[in-house]
Design a binder for these strands. Structure first.
Lengths: 205, 205
DNA sequence: ATTTAATGTGAGTAAATGCTCATATTATAG
DNA sequence: CTATAATATGAGCATTTACTCACATTAAAT
């Protein structure tokens, strides 16, 4: 049976500054291990050693290993959402072609934030029972895409806006993600243009 | 330091039929555990129990846990390649639009083979040091796409065929993969048309 | 029928890992 | 300055897990 391990067992919340520093060290060490040594080496004793902190300190602030991953995920997803949300306000004043380019560019920027960490983190968060923020992020992006397409419905030839939203959102998400991972083998500014051009052709054609 | 654990330590190869049956049971049990219980529960003792086999038997045929995953990956990738290769011969006689639809359809078929297993398996294979067949599969698909685009160069407006191949290949791969995971919420035959239509617009537009 | 090779078994071992707790140190409050 | 709360420590326990090995069973060879 699967149990949510990411929210139970309440722990102390940092009050003094040194303790929130400890928390940051733990999270940074975990991120570092994930990227440079892989999930297999992510164990609490090792995290403590890399963070320069004792195991006990970890369990002052995190109920278990899973909540460390969850918090790492929360922070990362929040960063991405911030970047993407900031771009939304620019869209209404732009024409369709420009708007698509801006969207792709924004998601690209979001993915440039520690792309390796993003990849490994999403992998591991998907294994975390009860952690729903990855799906939440996807849901938000899908909704944003759909309301954007609705606002441009008169310019768009597609009949099924739900399906079109799925296609647009998945295409942006995946092409930027893969592009960033393959950079600099792939020219990201060229890819941004290519991607938005494809979507423009698709939506208008 | 990272070490290839997927090829070392040679083990007995099955000679009698009961032994290759044992091997199959081990692989099937592993696949079942991965899909229904997750990577966290994939340990050799549990595999043995589910397979109805003793731990010792596992180590008669697999040098370590990693080689089980590797073999599972090999078989899965071979299946996908078989399906995709079979479609290649049809392409030359088709016009661009039909050919794209056929390609998307083929990759969709390949992904319909145990989509959940595919997802988890690719996740875990990426963590396997020394296992290169996932990248190999991607490389093959990229090359096939590129030579296909070259053969249609006169119909295609794109200047950078390498970049276009990347875009086309990634788009097909991801949209089919995600589509299959979201089915039946997503209508796969509609998605196939939508995807190939988008690529057609992109390449000719 | 007997020997030999192939295959199967599972208790047991060594190592890894999540986590606790008794204790020590540091900061803040009165 | 003292008392109390907050924070930090790390040895060590309980559990899990990869893997071995001495032995048992089954099939093939002669």
């Amino acid at each position: 049976m699967k149990v949510n391990k990411t929210t139970s067992k309440p722990r102390r919340k940092p009050a003094q500054s040194r303790s929130s520093n400890t928390v940051d060290c733990i999270l940074e060490a975990s991120a570092h291990i994930l990227v440079s040594e892989g999930q297999g080496k992510l164990n609490t004793n090792h995290i403590a050693k890399i963070a320069g902190v004792s195991v006990g300190s970890i369990y002052q602030y995190f109920g278990n290993k899973e909540t460390i991953l969850a918090e790492l995920g929360n922070r990362h997803i929040d960063e991405m959402l911030t970047i993407i949300m900031a771009t939304l306000q620019k869209l209404p004043s732009l024409d369709l072609k420009e708007a698509l380019e801006t969207m792709v560019h924004a998601v690209m920027d979001a993915h440039k934030q520690e792309p390796q960490l993003h990849q490994v983190l999403v992998r591991e968060l998907n294994k975390l029972d009860g952690y729903t923020r990855v799906e939440e992020l996807d849901g938000v992006l899908l909704n944003l895409t759909e309301s954007f397409l609705k606002s441009r419905a008169h310019e768009i030839s597609s009949e099924d806006l739900k399906l079109a939203s799925f296609v647009v959102m998945q295409t942006i998400e995946n092409l930027t993600h893969q592009g960033v991972l393959f950079a600099p083998q792939i020219d990201l500014s060229k890819l941004t243009k290519e991607c938005s051009h494809m979507l423009y052709c698709y939506l208008t054609g």
